[in-house]
C-alpha cells in the first residue's frame, strides 16, 4: 500500500534533499515513484527541465526505485493530484518548503493546497536540521479517536512501516468539571490502550499519550518532547466552520511541525485484501 508514490518536484529542491527523500521513501517500503513537475506555462527551458529530471531519476534509480517522470502544465496542486490519481499512486510525497505567514497569505502555499485537495495520503518530507533523514525510529500517531483510526491503523501496522516506537497521542478537550474530566481521561486512556494493543505487534514499544489543549499546538509540543521523526494524522472531510476558514488540523500541522508528517484522509479506505497484518479495534 505504500509501494507507489507520486512525488512533486519543483526543481528548487537540492539534489541532496531529494536524495534524502528517496532514501526515506525506500525505507517506507516504496518501490515505484512518479516524479511530477508542473510548469505554469509552456516553457522555453523544457529541455533543461527534462535533463534535470533525468538526473533526479538516476539518483532515485540507484536506490532501487522504478522511476517515471511527468511534465505537465497548469495549476500545480490540481495537476499533481490528477497525475497521482492517473498513475494510481498509493500516496503523494513532497518536500515541505516553509514560507512566511505574509508570503503564504499573499501568494498561497502550493504544498498546502496539494494536501487540501488530495484524496490519497500525503507524505510531507521535512526532516528538520539535526535529524537523520533516511529513516524513522519513533512515530507519533495523533488520533481523534473517531473515524480516522479505521483509515490510519492499516498503515501503522503495515510491515513496511519500520519504526521502533509508536506514540499514540490524543489531544482532548477538558471537561467542564473535575469529575467528568476524570471520567473523560479514563475513557480516552482506555481507547488509547485499545489502539496500542492493536498496534503492539508492529513495534517494539507502543506508548499512549493523553493530553488536553489546542490540538495543533499539543501535537507539535508532544512530538518535540518525545523527539519523534514522523507524525501521522488522519484528515477528516467533515470540518467545523473555523476549520473551513483557517484550515483543518492536518492542513495546519505541517506549517508548525518542523518534522515529517504523514497525512491520511479518512475517505481513503484501504482495500480489504491489503490489510495483511490484521488488527482489532477495541
Amino acid at each position: 500500500m505504500l509501494q507507489r508514490a507520486a512525488v512533486k518536484i519543483s526543481l528548487k529542491e537540492s539534489r541532496k534533499r531529494l536524495a534524502e527523500l528517496f532514501d526515506f521513501l525506500a525505507n517506507f517500503g516504496t518501490r515505484e515513484i512518479h516524479l511530477i513537475h508542473v510548469l505554469p506555462k509552456i516553457s522555453t527551458q523544457q529541455e533543461d527541465i527534462e535533463e534535470k529530471l533525468e538526473k533526479i531519476s538516476k539518483d532515485a534509480g540507484y536506490l532501487g526505485l522504478r522511476v517515471q517522470t511527468h511534465i505537465r502544465c497548469g495549476h500545480v496542486p490540481v495537476i499533481v493530484n490528477e497525475v497521482a490519481e492517473e498513475t494510481k499512486a498509493d500516496y503523494t510525497a513532497l518536500c515541505w518548503i516553509s514560507r512566511s505567514l505574509f508570503r503564504t497569505a499573499m501568494f498561497g502555499h502550493t504544498e498546502s493546497d496539494i494536501l487540501r485537495l488530495s484524496n490519497i495520503p500525503v507524505f510531507i518530507f521535512n526532516p528538520g536540521l539535526f535529524k537523520s533523514a533516511n529513516g524513522f525510529e519513533q512515530v507519533m500517531y495523533a488520533t481523534d479517536l473517531k473515524d480516522s483510526d479505521a483509515a490510519v491503523l492499516p498503515y501503522l501496522v503495515d510491515r513496511r512501516f519500520t519504526a521502533k516506537k509508536l506514540y499514540i497521542l490524543h489531544v482532548g478537550e477538558r471537561a467542564p468539571d473535575p469529575d467528568t474530566d476524570e471520567i473523560r481521561r479514563k475513557r480516552v486512556l482506555d481507547s488509547l490502550h485499545g489502539l496500542a494493543r492493536a498496534c503492539s505487534h508492529a513495534y517494539d514499544t507502543v506508548q499512549p499519550v493523553e493530553t488536553i489543549g489546542s490540538v495543533n499546538r499539543q501535537i507539535v509540543k508532544q512530538a518535540a518532547m518525545h523527539g519523534v521523526d514522523l507524525i501521522v494524522v488522519g484528515k477528516s472531510e467533515r470540518l467545523d466552520t473555523v476549520s473551513q476558514v483557517v484550515g483543518s488540523t492536518a492542513e495546519l500541522l505541517p506549517h508548525r511541525a518542523g518534522r515529517s508528517v504523514f497525512i491520511i484522509p479518512v475517505i481513503c479506505k484501504l482495500p480489504a485484501q491489503e490489510n495483511r497484518q490484521g488488527y482489532h479495534l477495541q
Binding site: R174, P176, D177, P178, D179, I212
Partner: peptide
C-alpha cells in the same frame, strides 16, 4: 449556576474557569 448546579462544583466565580485553567 451551570458550573455549580449542573457540574457539581462549588458556587464560586472561579469554578466557571475549570474548562480554561483546570485544577
Amino acid at each position: 449556576a451551570y458550573f455549580s448546579f449542573r457540574r457539581g462544583m462549588p458556587p464560586l466565580i472561579s469554578s466557571c474557569f475549570y474548562p480554561l485553567i483546570g485544577k
